[in-house]
Amino acid sequence: MTATPRLEIVALAPGATLQDRGRPGWQRYGLTEGGALDRPALAEGTVLLSNPPEAAALELSAGEARLRALAEVWIALTGPARPLEVNGAPRPWRAAFPVPAGAEVRIGADPGGRWCWLHMGGGIDGPVVLGARSTHLRAGIGLVPRPGLKLCPVMPDWKAPAAPRRLDLPEPAPAGVIRLLPGAQSHLFPAGSRTAFLDETWRVTAARDRQGMRIEGEGGPFLHEAGLTTLSDVILPGDIQITGDGRPAILLADRQPTGGYPRIFTVIAADLHRLTRMPTGHAFRFRLVTRAEAAAARLALEREIAELPARLAPLVRDPAALSPQALLRHNLISGAVAGDDLPWQEG
């Protein structure tokens, strides 16, 4: 690698990885596709910085992270909004801007337990395995972010945008409904169990990582007919696995490729990021949809991503010069909030 490092990790919570669009096509060999848990958030960073679509970003877990710019570097943060500061001054979320050499970037913790993505102009480099830079911690693939690690751009000759910019998008409220399709094992569950599952109100628990998210029903543990152990079978992204403890797990990009616990339904692809964006404790319901609805949702999401460049807008207001009231409000709400309260969207 001839590129000079631009950012050094100073402090970081466990569970951070480097993620791009992942490497589908190797589940036959026991490797699940990986990739950023929030595809739109990955795409937003790519568009903000004019990075190539295959660029990788740092996927940060919910804890605070601090990095130091080793040279001037352009960054953008995407995903559920959190406090973001450069040398102690608030900077806008979901925006691309330069950070001067020597400055410290602080990304506050998310009390909602969610991930966010730090993008760097020119993409963040790491070993390419089977065509992707995505880290897979359990398999020992890729870059493992840790304090002291220096991040190099893939493209040393990357050209910065003419001026700082943001994406003119509404900050969506956490989803109330997650859409499902039947999976290969839905029929193993009695009709009563399936109905009870769909009638339940669910909450996101704090137990989440790149393998999956545990949810729990408001009505207590979700129990089903005994004897539902199956032979080891393939696991799809979004499969909802029912284990003996009554807390289902929704399996994500770094799930095991196969497993013997039965899966009741599968979350549609277009709702996986709506799921991972939910803060811990958030209540939601599931809804079974038709294949036509799932396909329409997938196309709509693809269209939203394709139209992101049209949403680019200049970053006119310097958030460092915001009113004290706005700053105070920003600090008080610390992250897990509706985006219309965020100071850089004022005015």
């Binding site: 589908p24 096509g25 190797w26 589940q27 036959r28 290969a184 032979l231 080891s232 079978d233 393939v234 490729p257 196969t258 692809a269 396909a295 997938r298 693809e302």
Partner: peptide, 18 residues
């Protein structure tokens, strides 16, 4: 088609729904 994944009692064929 993306890939074929054999398991003990099933073959799963992954395809690009797009």
């Amino acid at each position: 088609v993306i890939e074929q994944v054999p398991t003990i009692r099933a073959l799963t064929v992954f395809f690009d729904p797009g």
